[in-house]
Design a protein around this nucleic acid. Structure first.
Lengths: 342, 342
DNA sequence: TTGAAAGCGTTACCAC
DNA sequence: GTGGTAACGCTTTCAA
């Protein structure tokens, strides 16, 4: 049923019906109530495509889905959905190929030009992210989940990645560890650089030399953790502690330790960053994993909220949220072994 | 720039331009080439909302996102995206709350009535899934990822879940195991029932009595695996093998075994189902995990393809794909210990 | 092979 | 407070 028919059936003009259903103030309360009741009874629903054409709004926000997202993605989206549910905004997935190809930018260009979305969220920026410059130029509202160093003013929300590794490293140093490995994300991303920085800062504060052989960059997979930890732990002067960028790499480190007959929590210590997942929890690992923690689901919720504010007129350049992280001490981080291994 | 302006600029009518860009046969090759070149040069792109209103097509396919999806979701979507990329179909996320609430059905109703999507894919059906009946009634094309027992004819693609557990159990029986635990998904889902069935079938073929205390249903999390395996392995007559429904539960089982000082691959055997993820791989676990394997990414790709065919006129009732699974033997499944534990 | 004009189902401006 | 009507930007008959 279309507006015209529906309006005719209840003896009102399309204009009035449209206004009543869209909550315009000038329609009388009595009329509005009646229209709403009749719409429910007769099952009238506006055609979104017509609404979109008439209003110029797309009614959707696009989420760029980089390969890097992987297992965090679902939690983030669920967070956004919590905030968006019931509203008139859909979530449109924008699958991307490999990062930073020309193709990737084309995707955004087409997206903007075809007016498919009202706003966009992008993840895992690199320090000088071309997507940011492009979206700014295209004048399509966007928010960055993560940070970039671009000079283009833009909205962003990020966790304090520098603190993630600084606090974890500090904690391990407090426990007497001196050879501490860092298994970070791919080093082109800003977040990975921030984490490198936090790690270095903690070491410097104690006048401990930075040793590049203790640091690794790679994707967040158990394999990355296993490979690097295995190699590192087989060395002559083996590390006594690890800072892991993700739960998956932490799994790999645990595994490497076990396969070498080393006990996590005594022979070696581990602290990982945890985005909080329902299917893999730090506190039930054996031993319970010490983590820096920040809910990626909550980030999704907040980003959706900020996006709503932006569409409501809030200035993007006013939006910059840096979320602190919790440091949760459990059993995987313990005092360094008294005797440095020979 | 709009069609009218663009057409005027290159000295053609909107009609011809529209036809040229949409690949209609009646426009001359020369004209088409010219129009395409000019469109690229001047940056003309049709407004999708106008196209959608005029054609009645939504240009998007909806993917219902149940909480059950979680970490598999991203891989599935990426598979769909591979097939859909470049095309004119977007992926619209349909976040759902808890399963089987009235609310859930409302979501689909609104979706259909507002003409937001051309087709829908739903996951993890229950045996008599109300969503299927509803979508059929609403006449919105859909495909089910998984199976239902409803009498409503519909398109579906599923892996052979009965074979998943039957083959895994069979394999363990061949190795001499007799007390084999099954850690399955939540028992309201069809796939979990099919897996129950496969497990029972394998046991029956060897005249081994079904013991309900060896079977558990729960969400796919490491905690589920850990909890149940810990309890089971602490019993007097402890099980010697486990069939796990997911990689996450397998992690939990490994962990439980270790915490009790039992070695996977000798004291106990484990076979799990693996959807194939880039961030957690069976062959690099310690010991390498034997799995039944089927790529959920490939399923996403195929489902997108089938959807395309349906929108092209293929009858949904003709679409029914049952995918076999591979059984990959690695080191976690080995002959049962000679001496049944006392 | 090309073009004119009538939709597609809303919203929003301007009268009443 | 309510109604008529011109957009919104495209597709698609129908005519030429």
């Amino acid at each position: 049923m279309k507006l015209k028919d529906f309006a005719a059936q209840i003896g009102l003009s399309p204009t009035t019906v449209s206004r009543a259903l869209s909550g315009y103030p000038e329609v009388s309360d009595k009329t509005r109530k009646r229209v709403e009741a009749e719409a429910a009874r007769l099952g009238y629903h506006p055609d979104v495509n017509a609404v979109r054409l008439a209003t110029g709004r797309a009614g959707a926000i696009g989420v760029a889905m980089t390969r890097a997202g992987d297992y965090q993605f679902s939690e983030f989206i669920n967070g956004m959905a919590e905030r968006l549910s019931g509203g008139e905004l859909d979530i449109l997935l924008i699958p991307m190929g490999e990062h930073e190809t020309v193709d990737e930018l084309q995707v955004f260009r087409r997206l903007a030009q075809s007016r498919r979305v009202d706003a966009v969220v992008i993840h895992s920026p690199v320090p000088d992210d071309p997507r940011i410059a492009l979206l700014d130029r295209l004048k399509i509202p966007f928010i960055v989940h993560g940070r970039s160093l671009t000079t283009v003013p833009h909205a962003w929300l990020d966790i304090d990645n520098e603190a993630v590794t600084r606090r974890a490293t500090d904690h391990l140093l407090d426990l007497g560890h001196r050879r501490i490995c860092l298994i970070n994300g791919p080093d082109n991303y800003t977040f990975a650089r921030d984490r490198d920085h936090g790690y270095r800062t903690a070491l410097q504060a104690r006048r401990i030399a930075y040793d590049e052989t203790l640091v690794h960059h790679g994707t967040f997979s158990d394999e990355t953790g296993f490979r690097f930890a295995s190699t590192a732990l087989s060395k002559q002067a083996r590390p006594t502690a690890f800072v892991a960028g993700s739960m998956m790499t932490a799994l790999g480190i645990y595994r490497a330790a076990r396969s070498l007959g080393l006990a996590v929590g005594s022979d070696i210590s581990v602290v990982a960053h945890d985005d909080v997942f329902p299917y893999l929890t730090a506190e039930t690992m054996t031993p319970a994993l010490s983590t820096t923690r920040s809910s990626i689901r909550a980030a999704g919720r907040e980003i959706a909220d900020l996006l709503l504010q932006m569409l409501d007129g809030r200035k993007p350049s006013d939006i910059a949220e840096l979320w602190p992280v919790d440091l949760i001490l459990r059993d995987s981080s313990r005092p360094a072994p008294k005797e440095p291994t020979p």
